[in-house]
Design a binder for these strands. Structure first.
Lengths: 222, 222
DNA sequence: GCGCTTGACAATGCATACATTAACCAATAC
DNA sequence: GTATTGGTTAATGTATGCATTGTCAAGCGC
């Protein structure tokens, strides 16, 4: 891996983000600049910069004298996030369909759907989730709005922990795969409005499902 | 003013942002850490942090050895931004209407519309633009999705310079005021879907108008 | 004249030093 | 027991120092 030319700040961001996403740094926990610097084997300066970046990405909150606090994600937070993702990804679906992409451009999306199909067959939820991520990522990628892509990526990261929790509680995600195939078809047909509707409904259903699970299982925060 | 308890970093962010928004720092211009530190009378550390924050807000790009570059905003950038604002503000309109706010909650929006009416009468474009900002700000504020509010605020800032340029080229914004009144009515009636449509159309029209002006007057960047 | 190499310079990335000040705790007053 | 005050401590905010390294340009070969 090309960690050779990474700045210390980047290293800190990457490493801290990994630790947060994997719950190695527990939601709600506090971490002082000095601690983290020692933990990562760096001086406070790059750690401090990394903390500010993570704060900008909504993963932590920096409170003077208390270090950074890993933000818990409540059901209410997830609702905010899913609403935003719903609107923006639906827009991406619309735009992508509207610009009538060449068939081969859609290869990543097709690949992702195929992978999801396989994962579904062997009930490998982790593989399925990964392919699902690829699908959504390819969608906003191909839509071509760089800012939209950046926002979606930020909030997908925030949602990551919650998705991992509900992954094993939800029913087999076969309906999702149908949605994805249908979306792909609408995009291929250049039917922008249909693409938007399909994806919007897909996201709305996913949102409802996730929130139900989070609330039912008493996760007021993650 | 409470600039007393502001950290130097905050001061730097505020001041640099002001300079960028007012074109005191020209789009496309480059500025080294050292220069800015001297300019603001600080050491490089808080300036450096401020640069990173402005980069996170999409106003500048930091390139090692070249300092920060004030990002020009092209018509293509404005299109991206307006698409995002359209979707998210329309969602805000929907949500606000759906939660049937108390009449007095909407006072800021009503006030903004009144102010716009007055400004329109005396053809005071700057005052009109300010009131328009208040209206949109109040809308996303009242909708209650904090993340949505934060995104909209970020991208509104990015659009600021372009809006200021087209402000005096556009026709008298009377249609805007009609839209705002209609939106307010739909929200009062709790008619979420109508509110969404009205605001979406409002934004789409504004987008088209602005892009036409930018392109017609040869502003490939601002 | 054009492109490549080389070397000096200077901007940066990071470490560290230091003053400030908020948080905590103990002791006191009520 | 609770609230208030004052002192101590340590985390931060900022400045500064220094090694690294990318940039730029002059000079060289072609």
């Amino acid at each position: 891996m090309g960690t050779r030319h990474m700045s210390q700040t980047e290293r800190a961001v990457t490493e801290l983000k990994r630790k947060i996403m994997s719950n190695e740094l527990a939601p709600g926990s506090n971490h002082l600049e000095g601690e983290l610097a020692a933990l990562l084997g760096l001086s406070r300066t790059p750690v401090r910069e990394a903390m500010l970046m993570l704060e900008a990405h909504g993963l932590v909150e920096v409170r003077p004298r208390h270090g950074m606090r890993v933000l818990p994600i409540s059901a209410a937070d997830m609702e905010e996030i899913y609403q935003i993702l719903t609107e923006l990804e639906s827009l991406a679906a619309y735009d992508l369909a509207a610009r009538r992409p060449a068939i081969e451009e859609l290869a990543p999306m097709r690949q992702a759907v195929d992978d999801m199909e396989v994962a579904l067959g062997s009930d490998d939820r982790v593989a399925w989730a990964e392919a699902d991520n690829h699908f959504h990522e390819a969608l906003v990628d191909l839509a071509g709005n760089r800012r939209l892509k950046s926002i979606v990526s930020t909030y997908s990261d925030q949602a990551h922990r919650a998705r991992m929790i509900t992954l094993h509680m939800r029913p087999k995600p076969s309906k999702s795969n149908e949605d994805h195939r249908a979306l792909l078809k609408a995009i291929e047909a250049g039917d922008a409005e249909t693409a938007r509707q399909i994806h919007r409904n897909h996201r709305l259903r996913a949102k409802g499902l996730m929130l139900d699970l989070l609330r039912k299982h008493g996760f007021f925060h993650v």
